[in-house]
Amino acid sequence: MADVLQYVVLTDFHFLVALLCIVFNPLFWNVVARWEYRTHTITRLFGSPYIGCYSLGVVIIFLAVLRSHCFTEAMKNQSHLGALENTGVYYLSWMLIGAGGVLVVSSFLALGFVGTYLGDYFGILMEKKVTGFPFNIMENPMYWGSTANYLGLALLNSSPAGLVLTAVVALCYKVAILYEGPFTVEIYRKKDSAKKKKPGKLQ
């Protein structure tokens, strides 16, 4: 990483904006989702947990598109590394982009819009844990698929700045997982506890 950093202008405006977007996005959706879980403010504002969840999802999608745009702009405005401009890296780039795309799309199809965009924080809980593909091959496939996409783009553009930003993406996702995982488990634990306490119907 130290060798890569020597080719990166850390004070470049576009690099800093991309860095800000990368750090901000998971922070935003975690803070807002937990706020909603505790206060139900978004649900009350829109009059429905579903509309609230869809609205937050649209904002998250917009922020993701903005992040990708800033990532691309940061790569355009920095130097390229000639050592990465070869056939092997080119094919590896597309393999990463393809695999990342499969993980992201299949995760979305398995979870649905509400499941993907924090529906459980709105009280919209799934009946059971999703265990089919791609969740049967790894935890958090959408996060790691997205990381693979960024890595593929960085390699495709022979961009040291892109590699550094991809490392930050991976780090931010890792931190997000540490916060999201236990919190989501607790949400479903409370759901199961409530079910057990609920009296059964008289026969």
Rank of each mutant, 00 (worst) to 15 (best):
A33E: 10
A33R: 01
R34E: 12
R34F: 04
W35F: 15
W35E: 12
W35G: 14
W35L: 15
W35Y: 14
E36Q: 13
Y37I: 00
Y37G: 05
R38A: 12
R38F: 08
T39L: 05
T39H: 07
T41W: 13
I42Q: 00
I42A: 01
T43R: 02
R44T: 08
R44V: 01
L45I: 08
L45C: 08
L45S: 05
G47Y: 04
G47D: 07
G47A: 07
S48P: 11
P49Q: 07
P49E: 03
Y50M: 13
Y50H: 12
Y50S: 13
Y50E: 15
Y50F: 10
I51N: 04
I51L: 14
I51S: 03
I51Q: 06
G52C: 11
G52V: 09
C53W: 00
C53M: 09
Y54D: 10
Y54S: 13
Y54F: 13
Y54Q: 11
S55P: 07
S55K: 03
L56I: 11
L56E: 05
L56K: 03
G57W: 00
G57Y: 01
V58I: 15
V59M: 10
V59F: 11
V59T: 13
I60H: 01
I60P: 00
I61W: 03
F62E: 11
F62A: 15
F62W: 06
L63A: 06
A64Q: 06
A64W: 04
A64N: 12
V65H: 00
V65N: 02
L66M: 12
R67M: 15
R67Y: 05
R67L: 14
S68F: 11
S68Q: 06
H69A: 12
H69Y: 15
H69R: 11
C70D: 04
C70S: 10
C70A: 14
C70H: 11
